[in-house]
Amino acid sequence: MSDTADTASKRPYRGRFAPSPTGPLHFGSLVAAVGSYLDAKVNHGKWLVRIEDIDTTRVVAGAASDILKTLEAYGLYWDESVIYQSQRQSLYQDVVTQLIEQQLIYACHCSRKQIKAMGGIYQGHCKNRQYPFTDSALRLTQCYATSQYQDLLQGLIQIDPRLAQEDYLIKRSDGLFAYQLVVVVDDIAQNISRVVRGADLLDPTARQLSLFQQLKQPSPEYAHLPLVVAKPGFKLSKQNYAPAISTSSAKPALLNAFEFLGLKPEKALLSESIEYMLAWAITKFSLTTVPKATEIQVSQHPVSQDPQFAIIK
């Protein structure tokens, strides 16, 4: 991990759950929410919720409020006001302007199709062409390539050096800010000290660590939880039409999330309140007991109309 991350453990614990409002929460989302929540509470820290709605082309109307209501139904209450990326455009633009003034950004006209034809990794084709910034995608000159880092759960993560050295997009040609930029700017603004999230973001984390260095800010520690997959390589996701978790009968799914995270709960917990279940989990949870895998397969067993899951060992 980068040198600046060494200070993360010395800062007050501040974690976050940052869903995108592209649909309702599914079981994979619940695992990430519960894992990040429990780690924050075990460490006597703050747990924040951020709605990552920066990509307005994918936002589903009403999904953000539905996500918040679902978290409340599962007893997962956040400690500070929810922030929405769509309301923070000026903050992101200030950072882009700062990087432009440092001559670290250039305009790019390459399409995804062109980059794929060139091998899939952008190789600076537009770097010296001096295209105007208007109506162009903007790329950041990579000055702090990060090809490996230490994950608290997965251990040493190594990234393809060519990908690590890539000048990546921070603003799209349609004017939308790129995820890699906004997530780092938000983590800095919220003073996030640890990020607990799914293992699908192992590679992007290296790029985010490089941006923390570029902005001369301390980076969080990272712990990437195993992904919930329906079959190897096929994660539960909104894009894959994973079923929404129930808000009227939360306890079974919560119990299954505990099991997924290695807590070994007894079924007798189902007779207790959600508050009691979470309090029990806080006394048991540790990153050391979470399975050290990047994905775990589950099978779906419909009981009533609520999705129930059994972990396939």
Score class of each variant (00 low, 15 high):
80 E>V: 06
166 E>Q: 14
112 R>G: 10
264 K>R: 11
182 V>E: 03
66 D>V: 01
147 S>D: 15
52 E>C: 02
292 K>R: 13
170 I>W: 06
252 P>C: 04
33 A>N: 12
267 K>P: 05
235 K>M: 06
309 F>A: 06
255 L>C: 08
268 A>M: 10
99 L>V: 04
127 K>E: 14
139 R>S: 05
194 R>N: 12
101 E>Y: 10
35 G>I: 03
24 P>L: 12
49 V>P: 01
102 Q>P: 02
264 K>P: 00
198 G>N: 06
280 W>L: 07
306 D>P: 00
253 A>H: 04
285 F>M: 05
271 S>G: 06
41 K>Y: 07
161 P>D: 07
294 T>S: 11
292 K>V: 13
116 K>S: 15
156 L>C: 14
174 D>P: 00
136 S>N: 09
1 M>Q: 08
74 Y>L: 07
180 Q>P: 09
107 A>M: 08
25 L>R: 03
282 I>S: 05
54 I>C: 01
243 P>I: 09
124 G>W: 04
62 G>N: 11
29 S>Q: 11
209 L>H: 04
210 S>Q: 09
78 W>Q: 10
31 V>S: 03
14 R>M: 10
311 I>P: 09
32 A>D: 12
53 D>Y: 07
86 S>C: 06
162 R>I: 05
258 F>N: 03
82 V>M: 05
303 V>M: 12
282 I>R: 11
240 N>Q: 14
23 G>S: 09
17 F>D: 10
270 L>S: 05
12 P>Q: 08
170 I>M: 10
250 A>K: 03
194 R>C: 13
245 I>F: 05
52 E>W: 00
102 Q>N: 13
76 L>G: 03
244 A>T: 05
220 P>I: 03
22 T>R: 08
92 Y>Q: 09
286 S>C: 02
72 E>D: 10
228 V>I: 13
256 N>Q: 15
37 Y>F: 15
162 R>C: 02
